[in-house]
Design a protein around this nucleic acid. Structure first.
Lengths: 103, 103
DNA sequence: TTGACAATTCGAAGATATTCGATATAATAG
DNA sequence: CTATTATATCGAATATCTTCGAATTGTCAA
């Protein structure tokens, strides 16, 4: 993905928050989307949990996650009826490096 | 300026190019806006030179430079009838650090 | 002071982004 | 198989961005 498209994905408050939350899911999602405790976070965070935390509609969050995914900033993995999203640390490091060295 | 506004400023191909050019004006503007040689670049690059290189209209470039300025990415200094723009290296380093450490 | 040049501001058209509710698809539980 | 839950896609309204040409402002030289 081109740098400009990555910056477009980052140019939105909610998407920026989602990225931040995905950077430390244990901290930002201590409970599951429906209040369950003791759940694993290795796969990432599901759409419903992100939807609740953003306060946006379900369709908007799904759309935003697609934007982040197309930009390479997150990766999705479907597990049964859930889709889990995690951050792509490499792409974040990459764009940070780009800003420091190529701009 | 908030990170999201900085990313909005970066989310445009022409503005990204302008920033890149301002990072090495001697290389990207060997001649002045009207073809003169041997001109100083310590003040930055004037709007006309950027306008020619982008191919956009003069008003658009002026507008874009204001967006970059509001985001803190460039600083302007008027010198007679010209306005010179230079990069604000500190803000670029800052946003790079933000991406690496706070997101 | 007037004319030319540089830059900014204004007003508007078209394109893209935001955001929603409704609908469709996919997976699971009964 | 059917109802339920999770997510994705569709269609549309509104907002913001892109970009221009025209008008305005600021500066300098004759």
């Amino acid at each position: 993905m081109e740098p400009v498209d990555i910056f477009k994905a980052l140019a939105n408050e909610s998407r920026l928050k989602i990225l931040k939350w995905l950077g430390d899911p244990e901290r930002y999602f201590p409970d599951g989307p429906n209040g369950e405790k003791h759940h694993s976070m290795t796969l990432g965070v599901c759409v419903g949990a992100l939807q609740k935390k953003t306060g946006l509609s379900q369709s908007t969050v799904s759309h935003y996650l697609l934007i982040l995914q197309k930009a390479g900033l997150v990766v999705a993995s479907r597990q049964g009826q859930w889709t889990y999203y995690k951050r792509n640390e490499k792409s974040l490091k990459g764009i940070s490096k780009y800003l420091k060295e190529e701009i």
